[in-house]
Amino acid sequence: WVPTKREEKYGVAFYNYDARGADELSLQIGDTVHILETYEGWYRGYTLRKKSKKGIFPASYIHLKE
């Protein structure tokens, strides 16, 4: 896992994603996520609506905010 280059990196989910394991994070369309790390097509972070739950999710489900 590699920390993100920018201190504040955010994105928005444009697909729903159902977590398949305890380390994964479920997403709903429109969720804003804070991205902490990246690795081979995956991000690690949390949604702003539930900051206490961190997990991994596919990068392809996220539109990055500039």
Rank of each mutant, 00 (worst) to 15 (best):
W1G: 08
W1E: 07
W1V: 07
V2S: 10
P3F: 04
P3A: 07
T4C: 15
T4H: 10
K5V: 10
K5P: 10
K5G: 15
K5S: 14
R6L: 11
R6D: 13
R6F: 11
E7R: 09
E7T: 13
E7M: 10
E7A: 11
E7D: 11
E8Q: 11
E8D: 10
E8P: 09
K9A: 11
K9V: 10
K9Q: 13
K9Y: 08
K9L: 14
K9D: 03
Y10V: 08
Y10F: 11
Y10E: 05
Y10L: 07
G11F: 03
G11Q: 05
G11R: 02
G11P: 00
V12H: 04
V12S: 03
V12E: 05
V12Y: 09
V12R: 04
A13E: 05
A13R: 02
A13I: 03
A13P: 03
A13H: 01
F14E: 08
F14Y: 12
F14P: 00
F14H: 13
F14N: 08
F14D: 06
Y15H: 14
Y15M: 15
Y15T: 14
Y15F: 12
Y15K: 15
Y15I: 15
N16Q: 11
Y17H: 02
Y17D: 01
Y17E: 00
D18E: 14
D18A: 12
D18Y: 11
D18M: 11
D18T: 13
D18H: 13
D18F: 09
A19Q: 02
A19L: 03
R20T: 09
R20I: 09
G21F: 07
G21S: 14
G21Y: 08
A22R: 09
A22E: 13
D23C: 13
D23T: 06
D23Y: 07
D23K: 06
E24Q: 09
E24R: 02
L25S: 00
L25P: 00
L25T: 03
L25I: 14
S26V: 03
L27T: 00
L27N: 00
L27P: 02
L27W: 03
Q28N: 08
Q28H: 10
Q28Y: 08
Q28C: 12
Q28L: 11
Q28T: 11
I29T: 06
I29V: 12
G30W: 07
D31Y: 05
T32I: 15
T32C: 15
V33I: 04
V33P: 00
H34W: 13
I35T: 01
I35E: 02
I35H: 00
I35Q: 01
L36M: 10
L36N: 06
L36T: 08
L36W: 03
E37K: 02
E37C: 10
T38C: 10
Y39P: 00
Y39R: 14
E40W: 08
E40T: 06
E40Q: 11
E40H: 07
E40M: 12
G41I: 05
G41N: 09
G41D: 08
G41Q: 06
G41L: 06
W42A: 01
W42T: 00
W42I: 01
Y43C: 06
Y43D: 01
Y43V: 01
Y43L: 03
R44L: 14
R44G: 06
R44S: 05
R44P: 00
G45S: 05
G45W: 07
Y46V: 05
Y46I: 04
Y46N: 05
Y46E: 03
Y46D: 01
Y46L: 02
T47F: 04
T47Q: 07
T47R: 15
T47H: 09
T47E: 07
T47W: 02
L48A: 07
L48S: 10
L48T: 10
L48W: 08
R49Y: 12
K50G: 09
K50R: 13
K50P: 15
K51A: 12
S52V: 07
S52W: 15
S52T: 11
S52K: 10
K53C: 09
K53A: 08
K53W: 06
K54N: 08
K54Q: 11
G55S: 02
G55D: 03
G55L: 02
G55W: 02
I56E: 00
I56A: 09
I56Q: 04
I56G: 02
I56L: 12
F57L: 02
F57I: 01
F57M: 04
P58T: 02
A59M: 09
A59Y: 03
A59N: 04
A59D: 02
S60T: 08
S60F: 07
S60Q: 13
Y61C: 15
Y61H: 15
I62T: 03
I62V: 08
H63P: 01
H63W: 14
H63G: 07
L64W: 05
L64K: 00
K65M: 15
K65Q: 13
E66P: 13
E66I: 13
